[in-house]
Simulated assay, not measured.
Amino acid sequence: MADTSPGTPRAPGTGEERGSADFAALVAEAAAAPVEGWDFSWLAGRATEERPSWGYSRLIADRLARAESALDIDTGGGEVLGEAPVLPARTAATESWPPNLARAAARLRPRGAAVVATGEGAPLPFADSAFDLVVSRHPVATDWAEVARVLRPGGTYLSQQVGPASVFELTEFFLGPQPPEVRARRNPDAARAAAVAAGLEVVDLRMERLRMRFHDIGAVVYFLRKVVWIVPGFDPAAHRDRLRELHERIRAQGPFTAHSTRFLIEARKPR
C-alpha cells in the first residue's frame, strides 16, 4: 500500500469519484484482480498505509551489503529482498505458497539467489550455522529454534512482524468483537521470550501503530483477498451485505480508517 506521508498526491479518478461509483462494479473489479505476491501497487490512489519509522527495506539492504551469506524466510514474491542493491554471494529465500514461489524464483534467481520451496511449519532445509544473516518480513510464524539453528555464532536475525490486533477495525467490522486472547496474539513481548528461549539475545525490539485508510470498497475487497488472516474465510459473495454497508458508510463519511501494528525485532546468536 502507498506511503501516507504528508503531501502524498492522490491519483485522479479516486476518492469521492470512486465512492460514487457503482457498488457491484467496484466489488467485481477487486474480486477479479490477481493477488499473488506482496506487491500492493493495485491499491495506489485507493488505499494508504503509514510506514514504520525504522525503514525495514533500508535496514536489510545495509545488512545484506555487509553479509557473507543470507536467508530470507517467507520471501513472498521476493519483493523486499529483490529491492536490495547488493546480495551476498550466498543468498537463499524460502516460500511455501506456489504462486509466490514462482514470482520469487523469477525475480531472485537471475541475481544468483537460491529460491527453495518449504512446507508451512516444516524445518528449514539448510545445514546448521549456514547463514550469518537471516531476515523475514511479516512471517506467518517464527520458528525461533530453526532460526537459531541455521544462524552462525555471532549471526543476526532481523525481522519486521505483524503486531497484535493489526487492522482489527476491519476484522471486527466483519466478524464482530474479538476475545482478548485473539487481540493479544503476535505480542512482541512473546516474541522476545521465544527468542531468548531458543538461545538468542534480543538487541532491538520496537513497535508502532500505523494509520491505514481505504477510499473505496474495492480497496477493502482487494486487501482482504490478499491479506487473508485479517478476515479468515473472507469471500466477496458471502460478505456482500456487510460490504454494501461499508460502501455506503465510505460514501457518506469518507475513507474507512484502520490501524496496523508492526514490530521490529533483532536477535543475535552468541558467539
Rank of each mutant, 00 (worst) to 15 (best):
G199D: 09
G233S: 08
V35M: 10
Q161D: 15
G15W: 15
V80R: 04
P123T: 00
R186W: 07
A70K: 01
A117C: 07
W38H: 04
T75N: 05
G199C: 14
A141Q: 13
A195G: 15
P255L: 11
W42H: 14
S41C: 05
G254S: 14
A21C: 12
Q253T: 12
R51D: 02
T48N: 09
G155M: 00
T142N: 13
H215I: 08
L210Q: 07
A141D: 13
I230M: 04
A165S: 14
L175Q: 09
V221E: 07
A197P: 06
A44S: 07
V231M: 10
V167G: 04
A191Q: 13
T48R: 10
L87Y: 01
R249S: 15
T118N: 10
A193H: 06
T4W: 11
F263R: 05
L205A: 05
V203N: 09
L264H: 02
R183G: 04
R46C: 03
S5I: 11
L43E: 06
P6T: 15
P188R: 08
I217L: 05
P110W: 12
P139M: 09
R249N: 11
P52D: 09
T48Y: 04
A198L: 09
L205K: 05
L101W: 13
A31R: 03
F126G: 00
R271H: 07
L101T: 08
A61I: 01
P34N: 06
R109N: 08
S96M: 12
P9N: 12
F40D: 04
A11H: 14
G154F: 01
S96F: 11
A65R: 04
R107I: 02
A190R: 11
S96N: 11
A92S: 14
A106F: 12
W97F: 09
R66Y: 01
V221S: 05
P12M: 05
V203S: 15
P125C: 06
A194H: 06
V227S: 02
V202H: 13
A61P: 00
T14Q: 15
R262A: 04
